[in-house]
């Protein structure tokens, strides 16, 4: 694999993200904080979807878990160390995902999607209806927390978000991405991809189908909860909308927009949608329509998402003779559930 150009691009992207608080008004850094939350959550989500072939339509439940976890730990219990909140959110993700995953990984395809959607809706109605515990539709407050034990008392909320917390989240995302990169390129990741492609064959090669799917489910839940804790801190609120099925759909949207068949696709999708949604909301109140139209266009014309488009453009520019030819299938391994137009049951 040709790594060099992409390494340069990634370093450049990280440097650019690092410069946002310095060069741009605080508004933009503040805007990007949720992006980091989503990026972390989607890295986990795509382990399940892109690498494991399981499309969860209830994944927002874990983001909600992280946000509500932050509200409980920092707000109710008064432990205002963000690191402890992160650990607590991760633990909550683990504890919830283990039994839940044990139940749901026995199903694949549309049944897996429906079951996760059902659990998501169940969580939503619990959060929504038990207002004496969860604040109902007004949600729970997530107070301001200390980062690495530092109060940052001189900063107001916006300055905290656009400064220290911004860098904190950037660092978290880099760590999360590094760990996920190791996971998908490990022997475990290989087995996960093999059972996505052909579970029967994988079984006979000794791949522990249910255990591996469960592991992927749990890891994705932990990532989701950590992302949710960031979202909760940023908005200062954990509310049931976080868990609603349309929010789960939003997560899938970001992943597909960026391209689930590439490692960085979900991060690209999270960034693109965060910026896009902000722009659209300032232009028109009908931004959902535009987003829906974009999603439809991506699904129809760009099944490999923005990352796939970038890869095609990149290989077109770097090919010695720049001539339009038939779209070439990439020769080396792709983590995607689907190549272009490939059905999952397209197993010879």
């Amino acid at each position: 694999m040709r790594r060099a150009p992409s390494v340069i691009l990634i370093v450049a992207a990280v440097v650019a993200l690092g410069l946002v608080p310095v060069l741009a008004p605080p508004f933009y850094a503040n805007l990007l904080v949720p992006f980091y939350g989503y990026a972390i959550a989607l890295l986990g989500f795509n382990l399940l979807f892109g690498y494991g072939g399981l499309l969860s339509f209830g994944h927002a439940m874990f983001l909600g878990l992280g946000a509500y976890g932050a509200a409980v730990i920092a707000g109710v219990w008064g432990i205002k160390e963000f690191e402890i909140v992160l650990i607590g959110a991760a633990l909550a993700g683990l504890v919830v995902a283990l039994p839940l995953g044990w139940l749901v990984v026995r199903y694949t395809g549309i049944f897996f999607g429906m079951l996760t959607l059902a659990f998501g809706m169940l969580t939503h109605s619990v959060l929504f209806k038990f207002y004496h515990l969860t604040g109902g539709d007004s949600g729970m407050r997530v107070p301001r927390m200390r980062l690495l034990g530092l109060e940052f008392a001189a900063y107001n909320k916006i300055e905290l978000m656009a400064g220290p917390f911004y860098y904190y989240c950037l660092a978290l995302m880099l760590i999360a991405a590094f760990l996920m990169w190791r996971i998908v390129h490990s022997p475990f990741g290989l087995h996960l991809r093999s059972l996505r492609d052909n579970a029967q064959k994988a079984l006979y090669l000794g791949v522990r189908v249910h255990q591996f799917r469960l592991a992927a489910f749990v890891i994705s839940a932990i990532y989701g909860a950590i992302g949710g804790a960031i979202l909760g801190f940023r908005t200062g609120l954990a509310d049931p909308e976080l868990v609603y099925w349309t929010h789960s759909g939003h997560l899938v949207f970001m992943t597909v927009l960026g391209g689930f068949s590439s490692f960085l696709g979900p991060i690209i999708g999270a960034l693109a949608l965060t910026l896009l949604q902000d722009q659209l909301q300032s232009y028109t109140q009908y931004w959902r329509f535009v987003l829906g139209a974009i999603l439809a266009l991506v699904v129809i014309f760009l099944p490999r998402g923005l990352a796939g488009l970038a890869a095609d453009v990149g290989s077109f520019l770097s090919s010695p003779r720049r001539r339009p030819g038939p779209v070439q299938l990439p020769e080396h391994s792709q983590p995607g559930v689907l190549g272009p137009g490939l059905r999952r049951d397209d197993v010879a």
Binding site: L55, G292, L295, A296, I300
Partner: peptide, 18 residues
């Protein structure tokens, strides 16, 4: 794949709402 079909109908949900 069925996930694409599901997503396309989800796109319709977003559009019809507006």
């Amino acid at each position: 794949d069925e996930s694409f079909q599901l997503l396309l109908t989800f796109a319709m949900v977003l559009m019809f709402q507006d």
